[in-house]
Nucleic acid binder design. Structure first.
Lengths: 323, 323
DNA sequence: CTGTTAGCGCCTTCAA
DNA sequence: TTGAAGGCGCTAACAG
């Protein structure tokens, strides 16, 4: 900014950054602000970052499948919280051609939130560049997962719900899309563990891309005595319900089904689908606070919820063998 | 990078940037590369951007609702294409607290792709900063929309499909979520236009958040003589189908329904839902080419499809009044 | 309270 | 074919 304001660069820097230590006369302050406004001046992000060694970008590294539902909402909230703290959130979806190493050659973010797994090389590179690494639902070698949400707990909750109704043989149904394995496997494993703890018979099957074959899979499940199904999400649950109905089975009398996500499809299904919903507002704030250390993040009120995940009982579950 | 390689900064810069004009002996080249590798040296993005005045970031500015389905796929493809051209794509979702002006204070991208509307102030700011602006499904004052896809065409195609089957009274059903108005209104308007062209009776209704009330809405539609419904998307279509069935109407005999998105829910519905699918691979390449001008973008083969949008006929549509 | 000054790491013209 | 030097726009010591 030209010293069109008639002051020195230092002064400009001071007032624009609200430097705590420095005392600037209100007159000068106004003069600088005025000049900045008329000139349309804004400091160059690159020069600033170069000088301070750090930008005010927070990068969310997302897995390479679409983020929808509760997680999408969380991202949105996180972005807003960070913006309030003067940080800008960007998302980058993992893809085959560029890894974090590449991405960090385009910018040096203040922090990277890993919502997908990082390789040791990526982690090392980020560290070397002084980038603050936060593992949130993604694995970074040597870092703790900061997410207050375990995918395995989702599976555990589903099984517990069925067990509570008296089911003794339960199954986990995985989605066709193996890209989702990163997500679905932990849920299944949690379900499996919980079933073992409770002494339930447990098996799992994976859908295929052929919709028709779901019928066969569900038939196999019911004939083997399974009375309760945990589905990866509401979409899978819906497809299981449909298949059962095609087979002349009644839901929930012959088969109970529990989904995940509390999505529209589950509400519209007949019967409506019992599901697991997420309470992620507090998580978003937590994460924002973690990322905005040293900045004055506006105080947030929302208390930590009793449970991050919660069962939403609907019509698709009942004790086995009766309506 | 220390001249641990025993060469000058110039040399390093040359080899690392593959400078065309300069001839570097293969020996030196290797020595530099070697040293860079062992030192783990990478040029600072900020310094580079400061010097050249431009970074290699492409920023996609997204509307503040979740991007799913075909558009999500497009983003993913775009990101991969840009990565191949040495550009890094970041996404930033619009939110209430930071606008583009704020975001551009964190970085100076090579280009911004507007997938949501920009204010004149935002556009001016970006221009002043020398950021290349591309309107793609978003409106930027003074810029042409580069998207080969008009939302209004989606609505038009839906109406055409119903008209082709002989329907004479059609309705458009909008989603509850008014955030989606930006998307849904153009579709509805296209449908309305097309209906007028074809001399069809046209009306539109909006769902409410109360699922039960959908029944009443659909009842109103059918009693007023509507035989064909265009739904905002497959989810809305599904909910219309369900409501019709609750009313004892049969789909498609009493009511034909056309959705949009070719989503799983439409395929699993009974009857399966006729829908509009998108062919966006070519769009992604086009857009990438537009953004990567001056860079050597790997050649792409996919030909421009005959139609960006395509009707997928399924079981939920038939001529009016018969099965 | 305000101005001077020295780089941050890189690219690039100019000379050698 | 390579080295030296200047400056991109900014921040932060350090005077004044």
């Amino acid at each position: 900014m030209a010293e069109a304001a008639g002051v020195s660069r230092t002064t400009v820097s001071f007032v624009l950054n609200d430097r705590p230590g420095a005392a600037i006369s209100e007159t000068t302050r106004q003069r600088v602000l005025q000049a900045a406004a008329t000139l349309g001046y804004v400091p160059s992000p690159e020069a600033r970052a170069l000088k301070t060694g750090r930008s005010d970008i927070v990068l969310c590294l997302l897995p390479d499948w679409p983020i929808t539902g509760p997680l999408g909402v969380l991202l949105k909230k996180l972005s807003a919280h960070l913006a309030e703290a003067g940080l800008t959130m960007f998302s980058h979806q993992r893809n085959a051609v560029d890894d974090l190493t590449q991405v960090l050659q385009s910018t040096t973010p203040a922090a990277v939130v890993a919502m997908c797994d990082l390789t040791p090389a990526e982690a090392a590179f980020a560290q070397q560049r002084g980038v603050h690494l936060v593992a949130w639902m993604g694995v970074i070698p040597g870092y703790p997962d900061e997410a207050g949400l375990r995918q395995s707990d989702v599976g555990r909750l589903q099984v517990s719900a069925l067990a509570g109704l008296g089911h003794e043989r339960v199954a986990y149904v995985l989605p066709h899309d193996t890209d989702l394995a990163w997500f679905s496997d932990p849920r299944r494993d949690g379900a499996s563990e919980r079933a073992a703890e409770l002494g339930l018979a447990f098996e799992h099957v994976r859908l295929t891309d052929d919709v028709g074959s779901t019928t066969g899979l569900v038939d196999g499940l019911t004939t083997s005595g399974t009375t309760g199904v945990c589905a990866y999400n509401d979409e899978v649950a819906f497809s299981v319900v449909k298949a059962a109905q095609r087979l002349g089975r009644e839901v929930p009398r012959d088969l109970s089904v529990v989904g995940v996500d509390d999505s529209v499809i589950g509400r519209l299904s007949e019967p409506s689908i019992t599901t697991v919903s997420f309470e992620l507002a507090h998580e978003a704030e937590n994460l924002a606070a973690l990322l905005a250390v040293g900045r004055n993040l506006p105080a947030r009120s929302s208390a930590r919820p009793a449970e991050v995940i919660r069962l939403v009982p609907r019509a698709s579950t009942a004790p086995p063998g009766r309506a």
